[in-house]
Every structure is written in structure tokens, then in C-alpha cells.
Design a protein around this nucleic acid. Structure first.
Lengths: 144, 144
DNA sequence: TATTGTTATACTCTATAACTATA
DNA sequence: TATAGTTATAGAGTATAACAATA
């Protein structure tokens, strides 16, 4: 047969969508939205990136980022510099303020999830879920 | 220590968000949106439900459903009946048309995922992901 | 009074199409 | 011409607050 077990896919879809919603609700006081969180975390982990690279990393269209990037820049959470070699590009980097926001607000979301995992899953299940996270990220890319 | 491994949580968040985005893009021709899909599937699997029950099952606020339910009803994909015992409630059930839409359009999304899993994951990884789906769904509930 | 649901409103997320600037 | 990015526009997704109806 061509396709794999659709039941497994259904379970994954359900889990992904529902946990995504739950995660989105978990917004601490000084709000940084979930998309903003992803962008800041990406820049924090992988140095300065162009808007296009960021969009690819986050699996969104570049147009979807323009406004969010403007917001984050105007709030001082990230800084924009012209690319020396290519005038079309700009390079985005996280600022100290951005790192602070990441630590304070943004990590709160991962802390909620970490806590929930600790409270309600066995060690084996936690490890399983970590691996699943990596697999899901891989699947979300179109590259084989 | 109180909290579990935040790194694991980060990996899970990343995977969930990115795969969720990817899944959302996978919209076949006769479009039923991802939220609509969830509602139809829920009603298909678990009989007639009230709006409140549906909202809880989908991890959204009841208010967020009103419009979508109206859309689905007007398209004939689900039917609404008064609750005999409680006049405040109504009962929603999937129609034949809804089941047809579910099969035709909606399953296409799960088929994409099933195919991606089949093509790019080992059997063990597929099974791991299925389990992870169930765990994620469990975590998205606030009930311990 | 408490519960179920709807209306009103608003903001986030995300996409497509068209445009500008640089290569 | 091709690529990187932005502007314009729109629709999906989701929430909070206020309200109506029923229990």
C-alpha cells in the first residue's frame, strides 16, 4: 500500500493542533506572542539572519513576517543592519532587550510545557516526546 | 528540581508549531479549513455534541466556534437540533454531506501527513510519533 | 444565581498578488 | 531577468466582554 497508517496521522494531527492551541493560550504577563517567540528564539540560537532565512526557519511566507519584524524592531527586541555584500538584504539580530524578553516572558511558555511534561508524563514518555519534537520539525520541512 | 528539561519542551514546541503550520498549508481543492476539519472529525467520531462540548474537545473557547458552526450548518455539513431536556443547549451532528466532505477533502490532509511519515520516517519513528500524538493531546487538556 | 450559548469586537496569524529595489 | 523584501489586502483563528435565555 502506498500511504502509511492514516490513524497514526490523525492522532498526530490532533495532538499537534490541540497542543498548539494550548501553548498559544499560555501567554505570560508581558506579552510576546507565539510567533514573536519563535523569531526571537531563532535569532538567539542561530545568529543574525535575513528575513528570508527567518521565514524559512519558521515555515511561513516572508510576507507574513514583515509586520512582526517591524513591531519587534520598534520595541527594541531586535536590530536590523544592512547586509554589507547585498543591498537587497538586511540582517536581523536579537538585542539584549530581546534576550531579556526571551528569558522572562517567552521561556515561561516552555516552562509551562516542561512542567506539564514533568508532572504528567513518565521519564520515558518525556524522552519520547522530545524525539517526536525533532521528527515533527523535520517533517514540517519539504526537504526529504 | 521542580521543572523538567526545558530543552525537551523547546524541541516539542518547535515541532508542534512548525508542523501545525505545515499542516495548515496542506489545504486541498474543496476547502474545509483546519478548524472545520477538527469539528467535523470530532462529531463524526463522538456522536452529537453540544457547542460547549465541542469547544472543550477542540481546546477553544465556545465563542470561537459560533461563527464556524454557523458556516458549517449553512453549508449543510452539520445539523443542529434542540436538546430535548435542556432548552439552552443544542445538539450538533455531522450530516451525510459532512461525512462526504470529511472523507474527500479533509482526509487529504491526514493523507499528506501519513505519506510524509511513510516516506521519511522508519517504522519505529512512525509508531513513536503516533504515541506522541496521544501524549500531546493529553497534555493539551488541563485535567491531570 | 448559575449555566449555555450568542453577539460584538479586536488582535494574531498567515497567505496571495502586486510592487520596489538591487543584483 | 531573477532575487529579496515590502505593501496591500483578505481570510482564518482565537480571545475577552457583554448580553440573552434557560435552569
Amino acid at each position: 500500500m502506498l500511504t502509511a497508517d492514516v490513524t497514526a496521522a490523525t492522532a498526530v494531527r490532533r495532538g499537534v493542533i490541540h497542543l498548539g492551541r494550548r501553548l498559544r493560550q499560555e501567554r505570560p504577563a508581558h506579552d510576546v506572542t507565539l510567533l514573536q517567540l519563535g523569531l526571537l528564539a531563532e535569532l538567539n540560537d542561530h545568529g543574525p539572519l535575513t528575513p528570508g532565512q527567518l521565514a524559512a526557519a519558521q515555515r511561513v511566507q516572508p510576507q507574513s513576517l514583515t509586520r512582526v519584524l517591524a513591531t519587534l524592531t520598534s520595541r527594541g527586541l531586535l536590530a536590523r543592519a544592512a547586509d554589507p555584500g547585498d543591498g537587497r538584504r538586511s540582517l536581523l539580530a536579537i538585542t539584549d532587550g530581546g534576550r531579556e524578553a526571551l528569558r522572562r516572558d517567552v521561556d515561561a511558555r516552555d516552562r509551562w510545557l516542561a512542567q506539564a511534561m514533568a508532572d504528567r508524563l513518565t521519564g520515558t514518555e518525556q524522552e519520547l516526546l522530545r524525539l517526536a519534537g525533532e521528527l515533527m520539525d523535520r517533517l514540517s520541512t519539504d526537504k526529504p
